[in-house]
Amino acid sequence: MRSFNGQQKQLLVLLTPATLFLSVFFLGPLLIMAVSSFLEPGLYGGVEWSFYPWSYGRVLGWADGFYEEFDIVYLEILLRSAGLALATVAVTLLLCYPVAFWISRMPSRWKSFCIFMIALPFFSSMIIRLYAWILILRDSGFANQILLSLGIIAEPLDLMYSGTAVILGMVYIFVPFMFLPVYSSVENLDPKLIKASQDLGATPFTTFRRVIFPMTLPGVIAGSILVFIPALGNFVVPSMLGGAKVVMIGNLVEQQFLASRNWPFGATLSMIMILFMLLVVSFYLLKVMKKQHAA
C-alpha cells in the first residue's frame, strides 16, 4: 500500500472535513433531487418508488397520455425567466460599471464608505426591502408624490405591478452581486495602462474598447454569472412588485412542491433549470477562455 508523506497527510486532514461537508450538504440534496425527478409523484405529495420519466416528457416533448402531456408552456416559462435574468444582468452591469470607476477614483475612506453602502442592503431581509419598494412605487407612494408635487406629472403613474417595477426590484436586489466583482477588477486595473493607450494615440473610446473593457472582463463575467443564476430562479420580485401576473420558473417549482403536490415534477423543473444554467455558464466561460487563448 502506498503511504502518504507528512505534507500529504496534512493536506488530507485539512481537506477531509470540507469535502465531507460539501458532499453531504451540497451533492447529497442535489442527488436526492435528481433521483426524485425520475420517480412517480405520490397522490398526496412525496414520491412513489417507481421509474417515471414522464415528468421530463412533459417539459421536453414526450409524455405518456392522460395526466402527463407535453406542453410547450414550461419551456416558454424557462425562457421568459432567462429573459428577465438577462435583462437584470444587463441593467445591473450598465449601472455598476461606471459607478465602479467613479468609486475606485475616490479617496480611500470614501471608497470604503461607498462599498459599505452598496453592501448595506444585504444586512436586512429581501422581503422587507421589497415591501419598502411597494411603499415607494404604489400610486400613493413616495415616487408619485414627489413627481406630483414637482408638477412633473398630473396623474399618478402606474409604477406598481408593472414590468418596470419588476426590473427595478430585480436590479435593486442583485446590484451588489454585480458591483463587487466588477469593482474589484476595476480597482485592480493599472491606471498606467489607460495612460499608455492614450499615449499611443487611442481615443478614450478606443482605450475603453481595447484596454479597459478586456481588462475588466473577468469581473464583468463573474458579476454576470453571480447575477444571472439567482435571478433565473427568483420569483419573489415578480410576485411582489409585478403582482404575480407572469409566472417565473421559480413560481412554477414552488407551485409543484406546494399547491400541486407534484414533487417529482418540481424536481424535474429544477434539474432542467440547473442544466440550463450549467449550459449557459459553461458556454460563456468557454467562449471567454478561447478568446483569452487566441489573443
Binding site: K192, A196, G201, T207, V211, M215, Q292
Partner: peptide, 24 residues
Amino acid sequence: PAHQRPVNTVFQSYALFPHLNIGD
C-alpha cells in the same frame, strides 16, 4: 489631448498590456 500629441512615453514598470501578446 494626450492621444493627439506627437510624443510617446516609455513608462516606469513598462505598462505593457497583459491581455495582448507582444506583437499586439
